Each structure stands twice: as structure tokens, then as C-alpha cells.
Simulated scan of single mutants.
Amino acid sequence: MTRMPPDDRLSWDRIRLREEVLDDIDEEIELELDDVRLGTQEDCDPLDFRKTYFRELLRLQGELVKLQDWVKETGHRLVVICEGRDAAGKGGVIKRITQRLNPRICRVAALPAPNDRERTQWYFQRYVSHLPAAGEIVLFDRSWYNRAGVERVMDFCTDAEYEEFFRSVPEFERMLVRSGIQIIKYWFSISDDEQELRFRARMEDPLKQWKLSPMDLESRRRWEAYTLAKEIMLERSNIVEAPWWIVPAVNKKKARLNCISHLLSQVPYEEIEKPEVILPERVFNPDYLRQPVPDDMIVPEVY
């Protein structure tokens, strides 16, 4: 692979670091967009992708709400697995999927490292309790594929356990599908240079430093080992009942839109008719007296 000259590389890194900061700002803007509707496709500057991004994100999130209603109405059970290297953008996609959905219907499973008791259980056991019931969506922010990735690369499992995983995982997933659970598996793909840039951006941002664990830093050193582990995983666990889908994720915003759009295309949802919501009249009682709130209970108006 051809490398840029040092000066050009430094300039490019500064540009990308600025984009990282803008992306963080955009995340906050997204939360304020409920009452904002951007222009139509015709009056949108095609060069201004951020405007396109916000408009499309709102549209796709509207479709996710329809999907949620359909899942609840039909009792569908959906599992979405999000895998990828550290800093690949899995959490960002999951955040945009769940941002406007009911957490009682759509929830995230992000399991920590297994404890001593869990290490003695059947490997899949701790994941089973997080599977969806009827009318639920579960997004796994990393999943049972930890064994094929981090556990393999960091020597947290034996060769026998690793091979047993690949013997078991196709049958485990086929069993879930036969029981009525739909499984959609995504691998978020970023380049070597992009991961390095995102790690450096986290190192320089006090609000993001918590995202960098010693394990993340070690994964950077073992890039090639992770690549091999990923290639083996995709080859040995890509089954017809639950295939892998690769999301190009160097561009975060495009990855989010593309992944959500693809997810919607994989579920045969329909818009559910809902009864009209009518706000009831407020009841006024002539003998009702509102009690004063003590001043020392009021949050100070600093702003």
C-alpha cells in the first residue's frame, strides 16, 4: 500500500480529526431535530452531505418506528448482531437505530467480559437470556462472536474451545431461526489508517478517552491477527439462514444510513394502522388547592 508523504499525511490527519469533532457536534444536533424538517431532495445542495444525512436519517428513523410497530403487532422476534474492529462505528449505528424507538420493544445487549461462573457455563448460555420474546428487537453490540474474535486473538480460549465454537454456532443459529427468531449479522469494516485516526482522536478528546481500554490498544498492535480471525469467522459462520453482511464504515454517516436502510430491507414489515389519539378534557375540581413547593427544593436556575 502506498503511503502519503509525512507533510501530506499530517494535513490529512488534521482534516480527519476536524471531521471527528464535527461528527460529535452532529450527534448533539441530531437530538434536537424532532421539530426540524430540512429541505426536499430538489432544493438540497448535493455537495452538502450533512444536510442530506440529517434528512435521510430522519426518514429512515421514521421507517424504523413503523418497523417497531409491526414487530409489536405481529410478535416478530428480531436479533441484529453488530460486530467489527474497535472504533468501527458499531455503537454509533446502534444509537441511531434505537434513538427514537421504544426501549421496551427495542433494546441493546452489550455484555461485559464473562465472570468466573459464566466461564464454566455452556458458552452460549449467557447470551440466550438476552434473546427477544415476541414483539421485541435486540441489538447485540458484540455477541457470541467474541470467541471468534477477541478471545481467539488474545488467547482467552483454547484451540479446542475455538473449534467447538465453529462446530456449534451454525447449529445454534439455525435452531434460533427455526424457533422463529430472525438473525441479521453485520460486520463494520474500516481501514488500518482509519482505525489509527479514530484511536488518536479518542486519545485527544477527554470526553472520549473512556472508550479506549487497554484491550483496545492491544487490538491496534494485533491488527493483522484480527484480520485473519475476521476472515476465518466470516468463512466458517456465513450460513444461508443467517448470512453475514459487510458494512463499509470508513465514512461514519454513510455507514449509518446504509446499514439502517439495509436492515429495513431485510424485514417484511408493513405500516400498522393505529387508532386516532384523542386528548381527554382536563378535569377541574373547584376544591382543588395546589400546595406551594418549598424554595429549598427548587433546582437553582444557573442558566
Rank of each mutant, 00 (worst) to 15 (best):
G92R: 10
Q61D: 03
A109C: 13
A110F: 13
E118A: 08
R55F: 00
D116R: 13
R126L: 05
G62D: 15
L101W: 08
L101F: 01
F49L: 12
L78T: 02
G92V: 08
A109G: 09
D48K: 05
G75A: 09
Q41M: 08
C44R: 15
W122V: 06
Q99G: 10
Q99Y: 00
I94K: 08
F124C: 03
S129Q: 14
D86Q: 07
L47V: 03
A110K: 14
L47F: 11
E56N: 14
V65F: 14
L60V: 11
R59V: 12
G91F: 05
N115E: 06
R100Y: 12
A110Y: 13
T98Q: 10
H76M: 13
I97V: 15
H76W: 14
V71G: 03
V79Q: 02
Y53M: 09
Y127P: 07
E118K: 00
Y53R: 07
A87L: 07
E73W: 08
I105K: 01
A113R: 15
R77D: 08
V65K: 15
L78G: 03
W122P: 01
G89D: 11
L64E: 07
V108F: 00
D86V: 10
R117A: 15
R100S: 05
K72A: 12
L111E: 10
A88V: 04
D116F: 00
V80F: 06
D45F: 08
K66I: 04
Y127K: 05
Q68F: 08
Y123Q: 09
E83Y: 03
N102D: 15
G89Y: 03
T120E: 14
R100E: 05
L101C: 11
L47K: 13
D116A: 15
K66W: 12
C82N: 11
V93E: 01
P46L: 10
I81K: 00
G92F: 10
C106R: 01
E118F: 03
P103F: 07
V108C: 03
D45V: 07
L101V: 06
H76D: 08
R119L: 14
L47T: 11
L67W: 03
V128T: 13
K72I: 09
Q99R: 13
Y127I: 09
P114C: 12
N102E: 04
F54M: 11
G89L: 05
V128K: 03
Y127H: 13
F54Q: 10
Q99T: 06
V128N: 05
G91R: 02
W122G: 04
I105R: 01
H130Y: 12
N102F: 03
Y53A: 04
A88K: 10
A113L: 09
Y123D: 10
I97A: 05
D43Q: 11
G89M: 05
L58E: 14
R85V: 02
V71R: 09
E73A: 15
F54E: 04
I105Y: 01
T74G: 07
S129P: 00
C44D: 09
I105N: 03
K90C: 04
R119S: 00
Q121V: 01
L57T: 12
E56F: 00
L131F: 13
Q68N: 11
R107P: 02
R50M: 10
A88F: 07
T52E: 12
L78S: 07
Q41Y: 07
P112H: 09
L111C: 10
Y53I: 03
R59M: 10
V71N: 06
D45C: 14
A109N: 08
Q41T: 12
R104K: 15
S129F: 00
G89Q: 06
